[in-house]
Design a binder for these strands. Sequence first.
DNA 1: CGGTGCGTTGACATTTCTCAACTGTTGTGG
DNA 2: CCACAACAGTTGAGAAATGTCAACGCACCG
Lengths: 233, 233
Amino acid sequence: MDTASVRALLAQLPHFRGLPEDVLEAVVRIASELDLRSGDDVFREGERCSGFFVVAEGRVKIYRLREDGREQVIHDVGPGRTFAEAALFHRGRFPAYAAATASPTRLVKLDATGFLQLFRSEPRLGTSMVGSLCTWLHSLLEHIETLSIVSAGARLAHHLLRLPARQEGETLVITLPVAKKDLASELSVTPETLSRLLARWKDQGWIEVDASRVTLLQPAAIEALADTGTASP
Amino acid sequence: MDTASVRALLAQLPHFRGLPEDVLEAVVRIASELDLRSGDDVFREGERCSGFFVVAEGRVKIYRLREDGREQVIHDVGPGRTFAEAALFHRGRFPAYAAATASPTRLVKLDATGFLQLFRSEPRLGTSMVGSLCTWLHSLLEHIETLSIVSAGARLAHHLLRLPARQEGETLVITLPVAKKDLASELSVTPETLSRLLARWKDQGWIEVDASRVTLLQPAAIEALADTGTASP
DNA sequence: CGGTGCGTTGACATTTCTCAACTGTTGTGG
DNA sequence: CCACAACAGTTGAGAAATGTCAACGCACCG
């Protein structure tokens, strides 16, 4: 990944869209690249925040560790999105873990001190970051809404319908962006329950499952589940 | 509430702290006051976002309505905090309902169009709003962490320990800022379960409950619950 | 003084977690 | 290139937690 493509990646971000050339140039100068494979750490909870990140390719999961050692996946981030910008301003420490979940995963890192310096000298950076922070707020609200649904089935349905899907006639084809165990963690259910739910829906003829490709044969049935909060029969 | 006190309230907010006098003056000019009683609506989901709000006195709950008509409390906001600033920038519509939960509740409203205009002309506003948005992000992350705890007992314990408390010797005295049914909704449990949990803990000698005043007689026991995720015996 | 709604308690049904065993896949090292 | 280890995913059986329905006391407000 050369400087030009780093520059192109950054230029299309909502953070930096509309910035004058010279400022964008300055941002590119404090950028560095990371090449990761699935399972590699990006940062660990409590570490000093050394910058924030843009996903160029692949996937990153943000998670916390519970007392009993299990992971709680908070979010998963794909190409074109950023993460850890809140840590930069808020406390200076990462509030969670981050690790790549795809191979390869390429990130662009924007150095903390460099960025903060730039941020102070160029007020328009603040203006454009407000928008992206609001996007984060919005997605966290979505997540809270999902988690606050009591029934596991409804939670899964609600979440599935929010994933990027490709329409094929009557059906929706969804490729799960993360491993099923991470999806389960994100929904706060056990992998067993997730597996059973998918199996039941398959038996009902509502969906088709092939590894991480889920086909909604009857989207209406899934939507009904998500809305009502009713348990899955 | 006169202009001077509105001004004083705004000046102490992280949003506007450190702003030059004339800019602050301009912010005060687009501010208006709202006087509410418990149960009064502030705004409704889907409404055009006409501004954002600062709590001067009282409490406001932010919530959504589920299909079955029940409320899902997303957040509750007290004096000195702001809400709906994300709606302003993100989509221009309120993503949830807001209502006062205390009498009296006094709010300062900052007009949307006026503020956006100001925002464009004064880049430093963006800089300072980034900080407050990060505070919101942080509190939503906390909420997600609480919700993702499977056991209702642990969820309650986790949440209680994050409420403002007054230390009295060995014990912690917490005044619940909202009605128990709203607290239950925020924790995504039924009011019945909440009631039973508190009753059980009282029997155990861990807490003392007097209406909305909860005294943690053995904070260590509650902390253990919150950490382990273990169910309450 | 009566109504409305919050909070509590009881009995019961249901879901989901836990523990355990088994299968299939991936990728690593010989 | 293959064998084997490690781990994701599935399935089964039992236990425990929480939701549902229902009834009641109580406070607050009209």
